[in-house]
Amino acid sequence: MTTTIDPTLHTAALAALEAGLNRTLDLSPQSKPGLTRLEDCVFALHCTAPTLDIYLHPGAQGIRLASTHHGPVTTSIKGEASDFTELATSRDPTATLINGGLELDGDSAPLIALQQVLATLDIDWEAPLVSTLGDVAGHQLAQTLRRTFSWGKQASAGLTRQLEEFVHEEARVSPPQLEVEDFYRDLHELELRVDRLQSRAERLQQRLRKTRS
């Protein structure tokens, strides 16, 4: 025997994950061209905590997940589950790959392309709702959901902005970003002046030593 965990368990978990992922991709039709372009790529994710290996095979039909792969891999990344989550949700995947805790081996460009496909999913709820509830009710519900999500996004952005203003301006719990930047600029300037003063003092001391001798 080569594996200690019953393969039925991790295969079932991967099957469920794959089904969920592909169902989501089905609801976001514009993601398909991006995946088709990555059809010949294989991505290996080696998770160290928890220990888990997943191979991603993107294609026109969606993404196939496997726990084993025999053959060349386009990109291999190794890290903890939290590092993978950070990469998946990052707005700047290149920076996350460089600065994060992930170890990358292979070509990073296809990996970034895959991350962008997954990060920019735009799910169209209307198609499944219409097929389940009918044209009129499905459309109405989809409209309501769209408005609710849109309002939710705006409300969340507004709340974040107001909270930031309260913390910085009203409660003065933390200084505003511009003030902090000014402070650091002044500090830097002061550091440069101190350096210049120190070198002048050293030159003066040398001149004094020469005059005495």
Binding site: P7, T8, T11, A12, L14, A15, A66, T68, H69, G71
Partner: peptide
């Protein structure tokens, strides 16, 4: 569960 057993077979087959 036979679907899971068959899925694991496909994974291990290494078919490309």
């Amino acid at each position: 569960i036979h679907r899971i057993w068959k899925r694991f077979t496909i994974e291990l087959s290494g078919v490309r």
